[in-house]
Design a binder for these strands. Structure first.
Length: 485
RNA sequence: GGGGCCGUAGUCUAGCUUGGACCAGGAUGCAAGCCUGGGGCGCUUGUGAUCCCGGGUUCAAAUCCCGGCGGCCCCA
């Protein structure tokens, strides 16, 4: 018997792009062979994984008093164009429906690139009085953006198939800013449940959401050291409210515009989930999103098939009643070793091997996916043993990803070190910065990197004695820079 | 935004430079049978390709040219 070793992360780290494509197609999670650029197909397995992630998102939003809705895909051009900054940004990225059958449409219809301009005209109708506020809604839909850069499965697509967008309206600035805090807290909980590590940054002025006053973004780091934005929370102020005339009547009979926020998460979160926990054997899924949490592999010898399979199904019954999503891989055509590889690729957190030797001893062999370590557990304690192991795998995945990412946040104070760090280990680099837009944009160009923004709240680290890493003026804040997707 | 590489069975790939001996070769997968079975066994047989699409050049195109669609990589 060959001993299994803890999987390496060599290909994962050094050839991440290949690794990711391979996972998507071999598991399979997401089929990219559909002949329209920037689109893809969620396979049955991928769909289950996606569903698991969506359920966590939905759960956190609903617990925080958000209600789910569904708005139309089509947005008339005059609505899309109402808020000036917003349309300026999205104008180049919109798909237009121009025909109905053979007739040219009188009003062009956009495929939503995001839904502010679809939702807010309805807010205008829904909001009359103070008592109509706050509104907290969300929807999970597809959106379309005509990306001109090279597309990349799940990470840069033209049809974002899994876009959760929340939209809120409030009576006061304070309420809305509190909602921003809530949104950030909700997202933090979502990513923590997925064990995806993140840094929060306030995006620079020139990179905030078009139409927003400010944007707070969640970024993670992929195995190749490049940064991926996985969520954003925006404070919209009253810009959209004024553009869409969303007002409520105040106590003294006057009218006041509402204050708004919106926040979004896409399937990039799923790309991050797959990438963050992966290794050279495939995925590692946290148990809460793993379509199968424990797979039982029968070790079948000739003449004993019946006994072994019977036992496997019995154990499956025990685990299922204990609330563990369990499968028995009873395929006869392939050998156990083959099955191990297949289920490891899929990221199944726990494998249970059950053969004649185990049945004899009334035990089972439990193998954790992340480390491929084996433990022998009595069948009488199989449910507790599996649960404990699942928890332990979850814990370990969280610790590993958190540690990995913490190691990729570097703080330097010179331009030279900034360049070197970006070129060698990538990740996020924090430097003192003067706060000037011109300086920032020049630095982005020179470093061939993106300014992610300033650390959000608790992560603030600026020391005022330092000078701007780029222009040398007094630094007013720390800024994060990274190569990004 | 700029540049490069590429598209051949489900997947990966040989062939393309120098057009013909390629009704396209291999591996893997898939199916059946045997042998096996605690980490991708082996053997036999079978299956599977509008050579991405359209046009052009030519006696002759997977191969050369043009356009389109699609994919990957690098740089700004």
């Amino acid at each position: 018997m060959r001993l299994a070793k803890t999987p390496e992360r060599k290909v994962w780290a050094e050839n991440y792009s290949d690794w990711f494509h391979k996972i998507l197609s071999e598991v399979p999670v997401y089929d990219t062979r559909y002949p329209v650029k920037g689109t893809g197909i969620w396979t049955p397995f991928g769909f289950k994984l996606r569903k698991g992630v969506i359920e966590i998102i939905r759960d956190e939003l609903e617990k925080a008093n958000h209600e789910e809705v569904l708005f139309p895909l089509l947005i008339p051009d005059y609505m899309l164009g109402k808020e000036g900054d917003h349309i300026k940004k999205f104008d180049d990225e919109v798909y237009w429906v121009t025909h109905g059958g053979r007739d040219l449409l009188d009003v062009k219809l956009a495929l939503r690139p995001t839904s502010e301009t679809a939702i807010y005209p309805m807010f205008q109708l829904w909001v009359n009085a103070y008592s109509d506020l706050p509104i907290r809604i969300f929807q999970i839909v597809n959106i379309f953006r005509y990306e001109t850069k090279a597309t990349r499965p799940m990470i840069r697509v033209r049809e974002v198939s899994t876009f959760k967008e929340a939209h809120t309206a409030h009576a006061t600035r304070e309420d809305a800013e509190n909602q921003v805090q809530d949104g950030i807290a909700i997202y933090s909980r979502i990513f923590e449940r997925l064990r995806i590590p993140f840094f929060k940054s306030i995006r620079p002025e020139w990179d905030k959401f078009p139409g927003a006053e400010y944007s707070v973004a969640f970024d993670t780091i992929l195995p190749d050291g490049k940064v991926l934005q996985i969520g954003t929370v925006h404070f919209l102020g009253q810009g959209f409210a004024k553009a869409f005339d969303i007002k409520y009547m105040t106590a003294n009979g006057g009218y006041e515009y509402v204050w708004q926020t919106c926040y979004g998460i896409s399937e990039r979160a799923i790309a991050a989930l797959i990438s963050t926990h992966g290794d050279d054997n495939g995925m590692n899924l946290p148990s809460n999103v793993a379509p199968v949490q424990a797979v039982i592999i029968p070790i079948v010898y000739k003449g004993k098939e019946e006994d072994v399979l019977k036992k496997c199904n019995e154990v499956k019954g025990i685990l299922t009643s204990a609330g563990i999503r369990t499968a028995v891989d009873d395929r006869k055509e392939i050998t156990p070793g083959n099955k191990y590889f297949a289920w490891e690729l899929k990221g199944t957190p726990v494998r249970i091997e059950l053969g004649p030797r185990d049945i004899e001893a009334a035990t089972a062999v439990l193998v954790r996916r992340d480390l491929l370590q084996k433990t022998v557990v009595p069948i009488s304690a199989i449910a507790e043993g599996t649960k404990k192991l699942l928890a332990s795998v979850d814990e370990a995945l969280g610790e590993r990803s958190k540690k990995w990412m913490a190691e990729r946040l570097t703080k330097v104070t010179s331009l030279d070190d900034l360049q070197k760090t970006l070129d060698s280990k990538g990740g996020i680099v924090e430097v003192p910065w003067c706060g000037g837009r011109g300086c920032g944009e020049e630095m982005e160009a020179k470093m061939n990197a993106r300014i992610l923004g300033t650390p959000y709240h608790d992560e603030m680290v600026v020391e005022c004695s330092q000078s701007c890493v780029f222009c040398g003026k007094d630094a007013t804040k720390a800024i994060r820079i990274a190569r990004s997707y």
